[in-house]
Simulated scan of single mutants.
Amino acid sequence: MAGEGKYGILHVPEFDGGMSSFLRIGATADDDHTWRDHTDGNRITTTRGDKVEVIGGTYSMKVLGRRQFEASTEVEDGRVKEGGITFYGKSDIDFVQGPRGQRRIREATVKGEVHTTFHGDATEFHYGSRLESVTGDENAPSPIKDYPEVMTENPTVVDRTWAKSIASYTGSAKLPVPSISRETWAKEMVSKTRVKTTTDETTVEGASRSSMKAGSISSSTTVEGTMEDATEADIIKNTTKASKIISETRADTKDEMYGDADSYTKGNSKTVVDGLETTINLGMVNEVVLGAMVEATVGAEATLSVGGTATVTIGLEASVSVTATLEGSVGPSLEMAPAVQQLFLNLTKTAPVRTNIAAVHLMV
């Protein structure tokens, strides 16, 4: 024996063409290894109790497995690198420098198919400068079966959730998210929601813009109870451009308007009332017709004016009444026109005095 310390060497003779196994404990003067265990054949190690291995240097293990895949594990400076069929390449863990100069551990893993099942609570916390999730590849070839050498393939994504309750929060009143951007590109989108009650609240401090472009839009709303729609704004602008607008309402309607109303129609206008129409004006009525005016009444007509009534007609006015006409005026009535032609099937005059003054026809 040479050198200091105790050591032992166990030599096993070769078997059948070069197969050798040996176990060396300790070291010789010309050997730096303090432990060497070499096996060329099969090896089975059984540990009945606890086993602790403390390695001060680099640890490396490579398993060929008699297949085209190679599995290996390497531990160096606290970093673990793994490679094998389950990782499709490798799993590297090393140290990187964080955004504030601190030392962090980084893990890079490439895997094949993974099935994970959790029986119990699961909690995830992410703290860092970036969190990114990518599914599929925009440049993946299609059909994928024609490109066997390409490993990337766009999957079918199915997300199913059954839960007692679901709560999702993005930002908070104390720390809101500075900017949120969402984009969806799809050839067809189907959305279905069935709930007992729903509440949707949106508060926008600045401007709100909404835009939609579609070949056709079909919207249907069915409400069993009362449908309420309330809008409060300083100014409301509504612009509609279409070749034709068809509106149909089957219900008793009640409209209330508080404020001035201004309506302009460029084109022909026709109003048909199949039933009784009552118009009450509490104030002055000004009617100006620039052009021809034709009024036809088939049935009884009663006009009651309480207050002043001024009618100015510039052009031809024709009034035809095929029935009895009753007009009552509690106040003066003034009509001015170049010429007034009145046709009556049965003329009954109730006014005691009729005075013609040039083109002015004054009836009291």
Rank of each mutant, 00 (worst) to 15 (best):
G275D: 11
L276N: 14
E277T: 10
E277F: 09
T278F: 04
T279F: 01
I280H: 11
N281Q: 11
N281E: 01
N281S: 10
L282S: 12
L282G: 07
G283R: 02
V285Y: 00
V285K: 02
N286G: 02
E287I: 00
E287Y: 03
V289W: 05
L290H: 11
G291F: 00
A292N: 12
A292L: 08
A292W: 09
M293H: 01
V294D: 14
V294I: 09
E295F: 07
A296Q: 08
V298M: 11
V298A: 14
V298K: 14
G299Q: 06
G299K: 06
G299E: 04
A300N: 08
A302D: 12
T303K: 09
S305L: 15
V306S: 04
V306Y: 08
G307L: 07
G307S: 04
G307Q: 07
T309H: 03
T309V: 13
A310K: 08
T311H: 04
T311I: 02
T311Y: 06
T311N: 07
V312E: 06
V312P: 08
V312N: 15
T313P: 00
T313R: 00
T313Q: 05
T313F: 05
G315F: 00
L316A: 07
E317Q: 12
E317A: 15
A318T: 13
S319G: 12
S319T: 12
V320R: 00
V320G: 07
V320N: 08
